[in-house]
Design a protein around this nucleic acid. Structure first.
Length: 533
RNA sequence: GCCGGCAUGGCGCAACUGGUAGCGCACCCGACUUGUAAUCGGGCGGUUAGGGGUUCAAGUCCCCUUGCCGGCUCCA
């Protein structure tokens, strides 16, 4: 039908009238509205009740099912929520009702099961159950504390990361949590991202009795990023081309004032620690350094147990960038080449780049097939300029380095959450907060296990002997609930043979294992960093 | 930030249309000394997130604040 006919039919529906007005509008199509209204003829479908009467009618490109009876078996309403009209927060909100429809009841059930599985693995729930971390209200939204058990995991994660960075030629730096506003004026963050920062701490000016300024007032900010500090480290003395690539690494804690509605467990927080590195390279080193870096990143992620990746290439947002088009193009081409050479799937993300340069991000699929954005590798032509970074080249000229930002975990908190959900709390032995629980069948056998535990501890294994007043089956249950990878059990039989019974987290068991063998197996399992059933 | 929902001991929950907060687990004490996911008994613990209001009376009703959950938007 024509637009006018449609307007007449839907005269009482302001939003529908707006859609009719958008039909075929090229400008809106470019913004993604093309999916809402096609450019062809308008069609309106009548939705008919049991008696054949028209219950309501709606614009729809169609086609429609002749009857909803077809899907009543696999249909379920899931939830309701508010959504902005046409996806813009400037527009009014409408109530959106979410439903899901499947060809069969079984497929619906499978879908609902997947949701239930994701809920079972929810890191917020596991974090409380396993006593890993919490978000006390008194501290504030999006600000976590790690409990001892979570702290052990986090320390193991960080220790291994440090070890690998050290082997790969990174140097460790440290920077403060707050800084005068001047630093973020230089970096440009106050211009672009002041809204995302915690508001400043004002220090008032100090005046002499005669009113002269003795000490000017000052604004201090919590840092939302580490890069400006690293640039200052670079600039702290003259640099030579011989030092490049110069790789600076820091577990840097940053604070970002995320909007109240977006904080979520450990995956979206207001205070976090980034495993942040900034690499300063000469222009002709970009490609080789990126290749080296991507290999490093993927290898390390694999060691933490993620092995299913694809890459995303985020390119220039035409409304939000600095630097010349030429250098953007060149950098984007280099990133694309390195990504393609990796052999991984490459997905474009047009307009997704930061204002200062394009990036590659590594997306990882977890144990139940969900994807998480993990590491990012970003090129930055802007910061070296703003901070006037220079090095002396072989020919004696002064050159400007290019900066590469990269975070491998993204943030330690977020990576912690991803691993917690990936493993559903059953961390591999090297990360498990308690690696071995030793359980005597009766108190009299505890000495035997104490001796075994002492030997394990000497090898750096985290082991506890359960000498509580609980009865034996309860102790098994407790260790099982805590998802401890290995249980060593000793009763009369084991003690008389100088052995232990070796129970795994999956419930399987080997009896009469000589103590030496049990210790060797545990030490080996921890050192290989392999997943533990 | 926006829309909607929610907030009861550490955790999970209960308390009819307003009528002086209960249970399980955890924790503490005692008994039991046990062969593979919960031994028994006793006890501690809450001014019902915080503040204000309505009422003879508020966990229950109203308002504000804080926080959480589901989305939207955002994510340097």
């Amino acid at each position: 039908m024509t637009d006018d006919q449609a307007r007449a039919e839907l005269a009482g529906e302001p939003y529908k009238l707006e859609l009719i007005g958008l039909k075929g509008n090229a400008a809106d199509a470019a913004e993604g509205a093309a999916n809402e209204v096609g450019a062809g003829e308008l069609t309106i479908y009548d939705n008919v009740g049991r008696g054949g009467e028209v219950v309501w009618k709606d614009l729809c490109r169609g086609p429609h099912l002749p009857t909803t009876k077809l899907i009543t078996n696999g249909f379920s309403l899931m939830r309701t929520a508010a959504a902005y009209w046409r996806g813009s927060e400037k527009n009014p909100q409408l109530q959106r009702v979410y439903g899901t429809a499947w060809p069969t009841k079984d497929e619906l059930r499978a879908y609902v099961d997947r949701l239930a599985e994701a809920e079972r693995r929810d890191h917020r729930k596991l974090g409380a159950e396993l006593d890993l971390f919490s978000f006390p209200d008194e501290i504030g939204s999006g600000l976590a504390v790690f409990h001892p058990r979570g702290g052990v995991i986090r320390k193991a994660m960080e220790d291994y990361s440090r070890e690998r960075h050290e082997q790969s030629g990174y140097e460790f730096v440290y920077s403060p949590h707050i800084t005068k506003s001047a630093l973020f004026e230089t970096s440009g963050h106050l211009d672009w991202y002041a809204d995302g920062m915690y508001p400043p701490m004002h220090l008032d000016a100090e005046l002499d009795d005669d009113g002269a300024v003795r000490k000017p007032g000052q604004d201090y900010y919590l840092k939302p990023m580490n890069c400006p500090f690293h640039c200052l480290v670079f600039r702290a003395r003259g640099r030579s081309y011989r030092e490049l690539p110069l790789r600076m690494f820091e577990f840097g804690s940053v604070y970002r004032y995320e909007k109240s509605g977006v904080v979520h467990g450990l995956t979206r927080v207001r205070g976090m620690t980034q495993d942040d590195a900034h690499i300063y390279v000469a222009v002709d080193q970009i490609e080789s350094e990126l290749t080296f870096l991507l290999t490093f990143v993927l290898d390390l992620l694999k060691d933490y147990g993620l092995d299913d990746f694809y890459l995303e290439l985020s390119t220039k947002n035409p409304d939000k960038y600095v630097g010349s088009d030429e250098i953007w193009e060149q950098a984007t081409d280099t990133l694309r080449k390195v990504a393609q050479d990796s052999g991984l799937e490459l997905v474009p993300d047009p307009g997704g780049a930061a204002f200062y340069g394009p990036k590659i991000s590594v997306q990882a699929r977890d144990a139940i097939g969900r994807t998480w954005q993990m590491s990012t590798i970003q090129l930055d032509f802007n910061s070296p300029e703003r901070f006037e970074l220079e090095y002396q080249a072989a020919d004696g000229t002064r050159q400007r380095p290019v900066m590469i930002h990269r975070a491998l975990f993204g943030s330690v908190e977020r990576f912690f959450a991803v691993l917690l959900e990936h493993y559903a709390g059953a961390f591999p032995a090297w990360l498990a907060p308690v690696q071995v629980t030793a359980i005597p069948v009766a108190d009299v056998f505890a000495d035997h296990l104490d001796a075994v535990a002492a030997r394990l501890r000497a090898q750096g294994i985290r082991v506890e002997v359960d000498t509580s007043d609980d009865r034996f089956p309860k102790k098994i249950r407790n260790a099982q609930k805590a998802k401890v990878p290995f249980m060593l059990i000793a009763g009369e039989d084991d003690v008389s043979k100088g052995a232990v019974s070796f129970r795994y987290r999956d419930g399987s068991q080997k009896n009469a294992v000589p103590v030496d063998d049990a210790i060797a197996e545990i030490v080996a399992a921890v050192r290989t960093r392999a997943a533990t059933p």
